[in-house]
């Protein structure tokens, strides 16, 4: 902001007057705003915690925590209603496990290829495609799973319905893949070339360098990538809502239809009476979900920080 009244002549005049502190009120106001804006990130995060606690905790007056966590019966509208969430919790384990089992080997292999083997022309053309994959909204991924994948899964595994944890996991692997590829690739490319040169000088082949030098050196970055992928798979809603099958029984196999926590919230919240026990129970599931993803992300962030510092001298 320019000072309105000042001109060069006045500026010259100020010089003779001296160097007294000027207040520049306009700038102080802007800088105050800047500071407050930066606090909003904390405010929103705390706000999320506060809302989840406030709306979710009252359920424990109705259903004790152990029954809520370990009960298998979710009957929100029977009389009296019961709120056991084990079903959702187990589904929230199954689906990301399937997604991770598929996405990790493929993602790490792809990252290793792009970072260590591919000529730059190939890398430059493959990376945008993977970025496009990352850009596809989850509802579209779910839609594809619903129309194309689930019939396939149904016939391949001879199931009653293709809508299952397996189908959801496969589609979710597509959403974890771009994260795993890009974070792993960054970790691999951050390794100083001297390490590779040293191994070549000892007569190692290129593959031996990738296998015994690059991947071990980038291991913590790759594990962070995997964790971020898992975090994404746990928190993903639309895909699992559309194709996991939505069954209310504790799934013992990924080929069964199931309802992960996110899907339980999404499908129940529209019908829940505001402030009623079901509503509270869904917020409590949200709280649990928040805590799980928070833990996963915090660990991933820690690991990633360590990897970043590794090669800084």
């Amino acid at each position: 902001m320019r000072k309105r009244s000042a001109s060069i002549a006045i500026a010259r005049d100020a010089r003779t007057k001296g160097l007294q502190r000027r207040w520049r009120v306009g700038e102080r106001v802007i800088e105050g705003g800047i500071f407050l804006a930066s606090l909003l990130a904390i405010v929103v995060l705390l706000g999320i915690v506060a809302v989840l606690l406030r709306q979710g905790l009252p359920i424990f007056a109705h259903t004790p925590p152990w029954e809520f966590l370990f009960g298998t019966k979710w009957y929100p509208v029977s009389e009296p209603p019961t709120f056991g969430t084990t079903t959702f919790f187990v589904a929230t384990i199954w689906v990301p496990v399937v997604a991770t089992v598929i996405a990790v080997p493929i993602g790490v292999a792809c990252a290793a290829y792009l970072a260590e083997v591919a000529p730059s022309s190939v890398r430059e053309s493959v990376k945008p495609v993977i970025e496009l994959l990352a850009g596809i909204p989850s509802v579209v991924i779910g839609f594809i799973g619903l129309l194309l994948l689930s019939p396939l899964v149904q016939s391949m595994f001879n199931l009653n319905t293709g809508l299952s944890g397996l189908a959801a996991g496969i589609m979710l692997s597509l959403m974890s893949l771009p994260i795993i590829v890009s974070v792993s690739e960054d970790a691999l490319r951050a390794i100083p070339d001297e390490f590779r040169q040293a191994a070549y000088a000892l007569g190692a082949t290129r593959w031996e360098v990738v296998r015994h030098v690059s991947i071990p050196a980038a291991l913590s970055g790759i594990s962070a990538a995997i964790m971020l992928g898992v975090g994404r798979a746990i928190g993903e809603t639309m895909t699992v809502l559309m194709i996991a099958g939505g069954a209310l029984a504790v799934p013992v196999s990924p080929t069964q239809p199931m309802m992960p926590m996110t899907a339980a919230i999404a499908s129940g919240i529209g019908n829940a009476v505001r402030g009623g026990p079901q509503y509270q129970a869904l917020f409590a599931i949200g709280l649990l979900l928040f805590l799980i993803t928070l833990a996963v992300n915090l660990i991933a962030d820690r690991v990633l920080e360590r990897q970043k510092r590794k090669f800084v001298r």
Binding site: I269, L289, T293, N297, L298
Partner: peptide, 18 residues
């Protein structure tokens, strides 16, 4: 960092509540 990792459905609950 943590805001970036909060599941979208939880943002939904937050928006509903607030």
């Amino acid at each position: 960092v943590n805001l970036a990792g909060v599941p979208s459905i939880v943002y939904g609950l937050f928006g509903l509540g607030v």
